[in-house]
Simulated assay, not measured.
Amino acid sequence: MQGLILTQVDGPVATIVLNRPERHNSLVPELLRDLLTALEKVADARAVVLAAEGRSFSTGGDVRAFAERDGDALRDYANELVGLLGETMLAIMRLPAPVIAAVHGMVTGGSLGLLLASDIVLIHPSVTIAPWYTTVGFAPDGGWTALLPYRIGASRAAVVQYTNTPIDAETAVAWGLATRVESDVRRAAAELARTIAGQRPGAVRATKRLINGDLDAIAARLDAEREAFVRQITTPEAREGMTAFLSRAAR
């Protein structure tokens, strides 16, 4: 039986694949813990590709998993999930090797954090990125406030989140959220990873550290997102939003 995360090492290049396609690779604690383990295992790689199976890269936190819980159980689950997502993002950024995200299909909610934490993002023309927070009634996580405003500008980040406006592939590149559009993102990511792996490894690692900057400051902003998410998740509007969202999804 295959796990939630698949890992392959080909010489100096490692590939990590999200493998929960029946649920659009939505994020649950088990998947994130397995992803953290995979990142530890590829620490010696010179370049890493992060990809996903199925129709979507990832649709963020599994709303059904939230809706099945209430009270303290819901708060504890939200705290664990968003905390693990923050840990995963920081692990990607702290990994010595550059991480190239090969993205296709839908990217919603907290799964944007996997793109924001990656060093390079290649996206398929089919990609749509959407927050859903103000629609479902959640507070943002996954770097939507901790990292996105610094990447695309505060005004753009605000409008997208306040109005739940999707970002298409061309816009993502124009705004600096992605590197370029590729019709075969897995192949393009693998080729780029091999090119990076052929460079001087010490220089590559130093470049990544300098580009990422102060990770402690990023960790603090991600922790603020976690606290806000946990506070908001048990409000009546979040419960109403989850019920409405799941009702639409069942049609």
Rank of each mutant, 00 (worst) to 15 (best):
residue 1 M to I: 02
residue 1 M to C: 07
residue 4 L to K: 10
residue 6 L to A: 13
residue 6 L to S: 10
residue 8 Q to F: 00
residue 10 D to G: 06
residue 10 D to W: 03
residue 12 P to N: 11
residue 16 I to E: 06
residue 17 V to H: 05
residue 24 H to C: 14
residue 24 H to F: 15
residue 24 H to N: 14
residue 26 S to P: 09
residue 26 S to H: 13
residue 27 L to I: 12
residue 29 P to Y: 04
residue 30 E to K: 08
residue 34 D to Y: 00
residue 37 T to G: 04
residue 39 L to V: 01
residue 42 V to I: 01
residue 47 A to I: 00
residue 47 A to K: 01
residue 49 V to H: 03
residue 49 V to G: 03
residue 51 A to L: 00
residue 51 A to R: 04
residue 52 A to T: 08
residue 52 A to C: 11
residue 55 R to K: 12
residue 56 S to I: 00
residue 57 F to Y: 11
residue 57 F to R: 05
residue 61 G to I: 13
residue 61 G to N: 12
residue 61 G to H: 07
residue 64 R to H: 10
residue 73 A to G: 10
residue 73 A to T: 02
residue 74 L to A: 01
residue 74 L to C: 03
residue 75 R to S: 05
residue 77 Y to P: 02
residue 78 A to S: 08
residue 78 A to K: 01
residue 79 N to D: 14
residue 83 G to Q: 09
residue 84 L to T: 05
residue 87 E to R: 12
residue 88 T to Q: 00
residue 88 T to C: 15
residue 89 M to S: 02
residue 93 M to E: 14
residue 94 R to Y: 03
residue 94 R to D: 08
residue 94 R to A: 08
residue 98 P to F: 11
residue 100 I to Q: 07
residue 100 I to T: 02
residue 101 A to Y: 08
residue 103 V to E: 12
residue 103 V to Q: 12
residue 105 G to I: 12
residue 108 T to M: 13
residue 108 T to W: 13
residue 111 S to I: 01
residue 112 L to M: 10
residue 112 L to I: 15
residue 113 G to W: 05
residue 114 L to R: 05
residue 117 A to D: 01
residue 124 H to E: 15
residue 125 P to Q: 08
residue 127 V to R: 04
residue 130 A to Y: 02
residue 133 Y to S: 06
residue 139 A to E: 09
residue 140 P to I: 02
residue 141 D to G: 14
residue 141 D to L: 07
residue 144 W to A: 02
residue 147 L to Y: 03
residue 147 L to T: 04
residue 148 L to N: 07
residue 149 P to C: 09
residue 149 P to L: 09
residue 149 P to E: 11
residue 153 G to L: 05
residue 153 G to F: 07
residue 154 A to C: 04
residue 154 A to E: 15
residue 156 R to F: 15
residue 156 R to Y: 14
residue 157 A to Y: 12
residue 160 V to N: 08
residue 161 Q to C: 09
residue 165 T to R: 10
residue 166 P to D: 08
residue 166 P to Y: 05
residue 167 I to E: 05
residue 167 I to K: 05
residue 168 D to A: 03
residue 171 T to I: 12
residue 173 V to G: 11
residue 174 A to R: 15
residue 177 L to E: 07
residue 182 E to K: 07
residue 184 D to E: 15
residue 184 D to S: 13
residue 185 V to E: 09
residue 185 V to T: 15
residue 188 A to Y: 10
residue 191 E to S: 10
residue 195 T to E: 13
residue 195 T to L: 10
residue 196 I to D: 03
residue 202 G to P: 09
residue 203 A to L: 11
residue 206 A to C: 07
residue 207 T to F: 14
residue 207 T to N: 10
residue 207 T to Q: 15
residue 208 K to S: 03
residue 209 R to Y: 02
residue 209 R to V: 10
residue 210 L to R: 15
residue 210 L to Y: 11
residue 211 I to T: 12
residue 211 I to G: 03
residue 213 G to E: 04
residue 213 G to R: 00
residue 213 G to K: 05
residue 214 D to K: 01
residue 215 L to I: 04
residue 216 D to L: 11
residue 218 I to A: 14
residue 219 A to C: 06
residue 219 A to S: 14
residue 222 L to G: 04
residue 225 E to L: 08
residue 228 A to P: 08
residue 230 V to Y: 04
residue 233 I to C: 10
residue 234 T to W: 06
residue 236 P to R: 08
residue 240 E to L: 01
residue 241 G to W: 06
residue 243 T to Y: 07
residue 243 T to D: 15
residue 244 A to K: 12
residue 244 A to G: 06
residue 246 L to R: 13
residue 246 L to Y: 14
residue 249 A to E: 15
residue 249 A to Q: 15
residue 250 A to C: 10
